[in-house]
Write a protein that binds this DNA or RNA. Structure first.
Lengths: 245, 245
DNA sequence: CGAAATCTTGAGTATAATCAAAAACGGTGG
DNA sequence: CCACCGTTTTTGATTATACTCAAGATTTCG
């Protein structure tokens, strides 16, 4: 069952690597199982030992870890085209959960099929490896963001990252995109209380940098936001950065 | 020029994957260039485009990012056996620097040689990929640590991680190991001021959990420290966790 | 429309930052 | 070995950023 779902994966891989026609055919030939997850449902859970990975074909999801003190940290955001648990191909146990924020279409791909693909197509294997390395680069930036930026800059940086990523995948119209995080979820991503998120968002709005409406994000002043955040997209390792406007 | 340096790489790979005799021979046959870096020297720099990766054969290094606001975040710690910039095999530009904290012996390995190795030995390719995925898992945990734990727990968690990693590599004697970070460097890793690190370290000492002396770390009460930190080593994805004592 | 969730605002507080200065340490050369 | 220098660590006092608590407004959704 291929269909339009694997298109999303191709689009993602093309944004970070160059593939041959043969590579693309091999990707499109992957057998997948389609499933749908409602908001707040776990797609995989910390502690699971998956025998397959999944492509997020549509929707919006987050990766999260719950600590022994009960606090939750959101470690990553996923949009359509991402393969949030590709790591499970080589790591047996999940050390985070992936949670749907909106209704998500998901295409499961058996690890065995992925392994065969990697063994037969070195360039594709390297492209998938590269994809996981970019995930790691994003984690590094998040450590720095969560660690060293003041609250407003931190929020601005997250917004810059999301906007750059969705634009690279052609998922944004101008500087507007889906952004279904509640302020409580933003708080868990940005190590802030929900109260403080509310104030920070108010400040960003007052500075006429961004606007939130209907679970969508509008960046009104990209250059201003980028400067506030100190955002440099190098760490996203995109093949060609989408033009700023 | 192989020699004892590549032994360290083998030991590391064995701690996270199982290799055939043939795989091990192929690793030992890698051509390397040996270099030595003095404390505080950059081994690679943010913005570099390396044509080789390096094995840290001995010493202790950190990965760090400097933000536009001038603050520095240490994103990772590296001990002998680690290949801190293995990512550069598939990511052209460095998004962090790696800095020696003590005199470090380094074995450079050309990317071309690594690529040939991966193409010829699928199992080794997967082991190296796995190694980068474990790095990513550690980043995830750091995001959670920096984001959601109070200062003392945060420091305790970092110490637990280091101790577990060096013990898995056989680099510790009991619960004592090399630990050359100054409090200022700890501050950059744990998002604390140096003043606060001093107080936190005093508290850990007062609780008779750890002791620092001669750039070495002694864990006096492993279970107490682990409990304080809420430390669960799952995310390190070690093949067999070294026994706690 | 009503109930639940989310967001906003204000007031008081806590954790950790900053500032400042002194003590301890580590390496170097006399 | 010891005196000296720069670095690192410690301690105290003050301040700031962001948290908690609490209540009210708004939005979302069945």
């Amino acid at each position: 069952m291929s269909g339009p779902h694997l298109d999303k994966l191709l689009r993602k891989l093309r944004s970070i690597a160059s593939l041959s026609a043969e590579d693309e055919r091999a990707v499109m030939a992957l057998p997948v199982t389609i499933a749908r997850f409602e908001p707040q449902r776990d797609i995989v859970r910390e502690g699971d030992r998956p025998s397959r990975s999944f492509l997020l074909a549509s929707g919006f999801a987050v990766g999260s870890k719950v600590l022994s003190n009960g606090h939750r940290q959101i470690t990553s955001l996923y949009v359509s085209g991402d393969v949030p648990d590709l790591q499970s191909l080589h790591l047996d146990i999940m050390d985070m959960s992936v949670i749907a924020l909106v209704p998500c279409e998901v295409a499961f791909i058996e690890h065995s099929a992925l392994r065969r693909l990697c063994e037969a197509h070195t360039r594709l294997s390297f492209a998938l490896w590269r994809s996981t390395l970019i995930d790691a680069a994003i984690y590094r930036e998040w450590i720095a963001n969560v660690g060293q930026r003041p609250a407003v800059d931190r929020a601005a940086h997250l917004i810059c990252e999301v906007m750059t990523r969705v634009r690279a995948l052609g998922l944004a119209t101008g500087h507007t995109t889906e952004f279904p995080l509640t302020q409580s979820e933003l708080a868990d991503a940005l190590r802030m209380s929900t109260v403080h998120v509310s104030r920070v968002v108010r400040d960003l709005r007052a500075a006429r940098l961004v606007e939130f409406k209907d679970k969508r994000l509008h960046v009104l002043d990209w250059d201003g936001l980028r400067e506030l955040a100190g955002f440099d997209p190098t760490y996203l390792h995109l093949r060609e950065l989408a033009p700023a406007e």
